[in-house]
Design a protein around this nucleic acid. Sequence first.
DNA 1: AGTATGCATGAATATATGTTCATGTAATCA
DNA 2: TGATTACATGAACATATATTCATGCATACT
Lengths: 101, 101
Amino acid sequence: MNSLQIRLDKKKLERAAYVLKSVAHPIRISIIDLLEQRDRLSVTELQEALHIEQSLLSHHLTNMRDKGVLDTKREGKNVYYSLTDTTISHIIECINGCRKF
Amino acid sequence: MNSLQIRLDKKKLERAAYVLKSVAHPIRISIIDLLEQRDRLSVTELQEALHIEQSLLSHHLTNMRDKGVLDTKREGKNVYYSLTDTTISHIIECINGCRKF
DNA sequence: AGTATGCATGAATATATGTTCATGTAATCA
DNA sequence: TGATTACATGAACATATATTCATGCATACT
């Protein structure tokens, strides 16, 4: 009978929770879904697809950016957002592919 | 130029966010991690591994159970919890495997 | 320089979530 | 049946998160 213990250290746990939180919201899942379809999207493009207030969208985008989920790049008047890596996409696919949900 | 739209319907979005929320917390990630190591664990066993108050653990367990993440079965004085399916494990592995985190 | 467009930010508010504490209940044992 | 063990629950409180509104800033256009 080997001892039972948590395999993840505190920092990794908190980091994981932190990132997962930034995904666990309908609007933010939608944003990820849209960014899987197009490599990058401007705030206006996202806004048109999501039908939400500009300010609310901007807050969510900043949130995701701060947590390392999204990258951002300004080009002229527009700011383009993109997924920083595919881990997040996998998570959404995971859930989407699961019949339970 | 085909039109951009969210591929997930509102219900699925909300369900996904709901379940992800139940994972996005250090204590709950730990619980999942422990349940990957042993098929099922009693509340006491979890408590010993986690070093948290019984009541707090119980609240988290009920939360995860209500959201369909955990199954439960009473046997005598003990109540055993187990993961309902592997999707959640995949998500944690996904994050754990990612160097970024 | 003045105006319009695209986006960010901060404060205020609303709502949700986490934690503690006290207590309740179910099963077992003496 | 009374005591103990194992767990759940609810109310109160603390903290975090989401949303709105007003405003600010940057770029581009006239």
